[in-house]
Design a protein around this nucleic acid. Structure first.
Length: 581
RNA sequence: GCCGGUGUAGCUCAAUGGCAGAGCAGCCGCCUUGUAAGCGGCAGGUUGUAGGUUCGACUCCUAUCGCCGGCUCCA
């Protein structure tokens, strides 16, 4: 079997080959393999249309069928520049000139030639099944200021069956899309009437948030945090002090004037926390201070980047700031990371990517502090034996950070958790504490969010579970389905009993067939459907069908109640009721 | 913001320059049902918005807004 990325990379060449055959004036950009296929960037004379894709696909098939051998050639940089200049490939020339080596390699197939490190499949005939999936604009070398090229995405496989399988999986993944499920499950909506990127939370979404927020608050109180609240807007002066007005303005909304003073809607919660810190003299005995806030912030996001709940303009961060001494830094970071992993695990996220971002070129704070903080982050990751990737120079100017990213249904990664050491704000706000030595010291500040934002986190949750939330999170945990109208009274009685136990229960009293009611309950992904007919009324029991299709008969209301409560209380991720039920 | 696509009923989609339609959901009625759709009826629309072309526009053109896929940027 051919390695996927080699096959895909060769397919990108085949795509470029076909494009050059059909549109000889096209200039080539780059064409790598990616996680889910390949792409190639082109500078076309004309706009591409989806119909062009069919034509290109056909040409690719034709070229593949000819089974041209793919051959490698090593050229001096000079010769390579000459070769691509003659062919009018300005972008390739630019790339060659920037390569550090004296020699470069090119690959040939028929008349087509491309600058490339390789490796490639031996001949074009090895690419048997491919599909060009989409067209998109992409800036040359990812730079907004440079020309926009037209990018063609595709996938390819060694057989038609594999391709079909892949396309089928894509279709399945699309069904998990939180924007589709968010509507179907009546969780949230985003409407132009209110504004782009500003979600409205419907009752089911409101309930989800309530459960998550309660869990989060209780857990933070247990873990030594205090809960604080800061308002949605603050004077512009404050954002000047914090530096946001200088460094973050392009993400902030325009100020509004109130009685002669300018106010800003907050894009961050930190300045408020700084002011609370400054509200009185702090002692070393107070440290570490851990303040948490479910703080709603508003950031200007360019219209093209908005994406359901995963990228919005107003969102609630599960924010917290820790003020500590240098000596406490290691322990605090370790505790935060532990808490983050614990919370993610509770929600069923066991797979994520962790990044450690280190000092960038532009930075504030002393090298000493940077090193200490970076080591503290690293040590915490190692203590917990977490796999991570280092992103050198990718830290924020004010400190190093750990980011945790969760993937959506289509494999796109979204940053949720972030742990950032901040050397900047303590300076700017001149915060301090009195040390044991009776001298003033500047605390270290850690900024952290674990779910990141409730919006994004819930979006990820919806996709992770394809809408079938764990019992403890399900907006409706059980629904009562009487078979005929004469069973309604008993149904309502059961509903009342379960509700009294604190469970979220509904009843479907419509004069509908039980099949219909089950179908609807199933579509709403309600964990348990409680079916009541003559037998159940008579014996004062229930028949339980869980959403996985499992059927248990003759269950007493009381034991069901206990069984569900037990699962809810331990935030179980599965629906298996205890055997005694 | 940029490139491309797209916008018809709450949802999914028809109608290609000539009377805006279907299924589901909703409402009303009948049926009284045993583990994924019982039957019938009713109602539902300034075709995203604003202009324009035309005897006539859902359909063609312009602008604008939203949405979708990318790019850049980010929790």
């Amino acid at each position: 079997m051919i390695e996927k990325d080699i096959l895909w990379h060769s397919s990108a060449h085949l795509l470029a080959h076909a494009v050059k055959e059909l549109y000889p004036k096209t200039k080539l950009g780059i064409g790598p393999s990616i996680e889910t296929g390949f792409y190639y960037d082109f500078d076309f004379e004309h706009k591409l249309t989806p119909e062009n894709l069919n034509k290109i696909e056909k040409k690719m098939a034709e070229l593949a069928a000819k089974n041209y051998p793919i051959t490698k050639e090593t050229l001096s940089k000079k010769d390579a520049v000459k070769l691509f200049k003659e062919r009018g490939e300005d972008y390739k020339v630019e790339l060659i000139n920037e390569l550090p080596d004296k020699e470069v390699t090119v690959y040939h197939q028929d008349s087509f030639v491309d600058l490339c490190r390789g490796p490639h499949v031996k001949s074009t005939g090895l690419m048997k099944a491919f599909k060009l999936t989409s067209i998109a604009g992409a800036y040359w070398r990812g730079d907004e200021k440079r020309p926009m090229l037209q990018r063609i995405y595709g996938v390819s496989f060694e057989s038609k069956a594999q391709l079909d399988d892949f396309l089928e999986k894509l279709k399945e993944a699309a069904k998990r899309d939180h924007r589709v499920l968010g509507k179907e499950l009546d969780i949230y909506s985003i409407t132009d009437e209110w504004g782009a990127g500003l979600p409205l939370w419907h009752p089911n979404g409101g309930l989800l948030r309530h459960v998550i927020e309660s869990y989060w608050k209780d857990l933070h109180l247990e873990e030594g945090y205090s809960l604080i609240t800061t308002p949605h807007m603050a004077k512009l002066d404050l954002w000047e002090t914090s530096g946001h007005w200088d460094f973050y303005r392009e993400n902030m909304y325009s100020p509004m004037e109130i009685e002669g003073a300018d106010y800003e809607i907050k894009p961050m919660n930190c300045p408020g926390h700084m002011l609370i810190y400054k509200s009185k003299t702090r002692s070393y005995r107070d440290l570490p201070i851990r303040w948490a806030e479910l703080g709603t912030v508003y950031r200007y996001e360019r219209s093209g980047v908005l994406h359901g709940l995963l990228r919005v303009r107003g969102f609630t961060q599960d924010d917290a700031h820790i003020f500590c001494s240098t000596e406490q830094l290691n322990d605090e970071i370790l505790a935060i990371l532990k808490l983050a992993i614990r919370i993610l695990k509770t929600f069923g996220f066991n797979e994520y990517d962790i990044y450690l971002s280190t000092r960038p070129k532009k930075y504030v704070g002393s090298l000493d502090n940077w090193e200490r903080a970076t080591n503290a982050l690293k040590k915490a990751l190692e203590d917990l034996m977490l796999d991570y990737q280092e992103d050198p120079g990718e830290g924020v100017f004010y400190g190093p950070k750990i980011d945790i990213k969760i993937k959506d249904a289509l494999g796109r990664a979204w940053q949720c958790s972030t742990i950032q050491v901040d050397f900047n704000l303590p300076e700017r706000f001149e915060i301090q504490y009195m040390g044991k030595d009776n001298k003033e010291h500047r605390p270290i500040m850690i900024h952290r969010a674990i779910m990141g934002s409730l919006e994004r986190f819930i979006g990820c949750l919806i996709e992770h579970y394809a809408g079938a939330f764990p019992l403890w999170l399900s907006p409706v945990q059980a629904t009562i389905l009487p078979i005929a109208d004469r069973h309604n009274d008993y149904g309502l009685e059961v509903e009342k009993q379960l509700k009294e136990a604190g469970l979220r229960v509904s009843s479907d009293l419509r004069s509908q067939s039980v099949n219909k009611k089950i179908r609807d309950g199933q579509k709403q992904k309600i964990p348990y459907m409680l079916i009541i007919g003559d037998e159940e009324v008579e014996k004062k029991v229930l028949s339980i069908r869980d959403r996985q299709g499992k059927d248990i008969r003759n269950v007493k209301v009381d034991s069901l109640k206990k069984g569900i409560l037990k699962l809810v209380n331990k935030k179980s991720l599965d629906l298996e009721l205890n055997a005694s039920v």
